Amino acid sequence: MAGFRIGRGRGSDNRPPQQQRPQQAPPPPYGPSHGQYGGAQGAPAYPPQQQWPPNGGGHPRQGRAPHGEPEYFGDPHPAADPYADNPGHTRAFSINEDPYGHAATYHAGSASAPVGPRLHWKELLRGIVMRPGPTFHQMRDYPVWGPALTVSFLYGLLAIFGFDQSREEVIKAPFTTALTSVLITGVFFVIGSLILGTVTHTLARQLGGDGSWQPTVGLSMLIMPLTDAPRLVFAMFLGGDNPLVQVVGWATWLAAGALFTSMVSKSHDLPWPKALGASAIQLIALLAIIKLGTI
């Protein structure tokens, strides 16, 4: 009875061990046995590395890695690239090297050194009146809270006597009531000038200025009482409705506009039209509250 013999191991092939089929060699790691570019068996799967001429500038030899990355060989400090700064090429710079040279432009409020030393309060007040431009330029990075708060408060104590009706009410009132009214006026003037100075600083920033808040507000608080001091002196003796007082008031208001424009321009590095626009609200408030006494 014919049949098939099924077995395990070596006996399943029905051939002696020396006649069994030899095992095949594993395929090459980079594809079939023949070359990638149609060459003979055993040819490299990738073309040979490309070498640059030794005197062509840049790296002496450059090739391509198996995955396309550039490989550089030779001197780690190559000669200058003749194609640098041309379209499609870049230039390498070392650490801490400024490719554009040293910048000489000063920006207010930055970490650069100030123009000069801090002025004493006497020199500051004198400089605002006699030489406003250089004074604002020198003090644009220094806070002036001491002189600003003191001068503003002293002016507020006397401002109530610059209007006829207010002066008569204070003089006729009891001492305690009059003192309270004078002190409240001084405090209100300090707070009001602080708010108006902040508005001027904010507008200057919106228009592209780069100045600091403290110097801008402090200097604006000094400009308001210093420019109105001549009108206040005449108004205390001649009355607020006197024609001379009115003329002096308009003249000092124009002077205040010039000082505000100069201060904002120096503190925020702005042209004078933008500096005048930034201080417009403070000028209008100064005219309505102090010069005309309508509020």
Rank of each mutant, 00 (worst) to 15 (best):
G109M: 05
P273Y: 03
T135W: 11
Y100M: 08
T202C: 10
L226W: 06
M263E: 10
G192A: 13
S212H: 07
T177P: 00
T227S: 15
P243V: 08
F153L: 15
E69A: 15
T180Q: 14
P27H: 09
T135M: 10
H137E: 14
T294C: 08
A92Y: 14
S267R: 10
Q36H: 11
G7A: 13
P54M: 09
H120C: 09
K266Q: 14
L226Q: 06
F234P: 02
A178D: 02
L259R: 01
G186E: 07
T180D: 09
P78D: 01
V182Y: 06
S279T: 04
G39C: 01
K291D: 11
G56I: 03
Y106I: 13
T200D: 11
G116I: 00
V199S: 07
L124I: 03
D75Y: 07
R126F: 10
P243I: 08
A84N: 02
S265Q: 06
M130P: 00
F188L: 15
L194I: 05
H77E: 12
P225N: 07
Q36V: 00
M139G: 00
N86G: 11
F4M: 11
Q282P: 02
V115G: 07
P132I: 05
P225K: 07
S181K: 13
P143T: 00
D85Q: 12
P78M: 05
L154H: 01
L203P: 01
A148V: 05
W213V: 13
G63Q: 04
V264I: 15
G7F: 11
T198W: 13
R167F: 01
P147I: 02
G101F: 04
G146M: 12
S193N: 15
V151W: 04
A2G: 09
S212A: 13
A159T: 05
G31S: 06
P230L: 10
P53F: 05
A148M: 07
A103P: 08
V233K: 03
F161P: 01
L119N: 02
L149V: 15
H67Y: 11
G11Q: 13
P230Y: 11
D228R: 14
L124Y: 03
P66M: 08
G3Q: 06
A235V: 08
D13L: 12
T176K: 06
P230K: 07
A251S: 13
S279C: 06
P44H: 08
V199K: 05
P32F: 04
A25K: 04
P78E: 04
P16V: 08
M139D: 09
L286E: 10
Q51A: 14
P47Q: 14
H201M: 05
S166A: 14
P66R: 10
Y72T: 03
P82A: 02
G3S: 08
Y72P: 00
A229L: 15
T135E: 06
L219D: 00
D98S: 12
A251W: 04
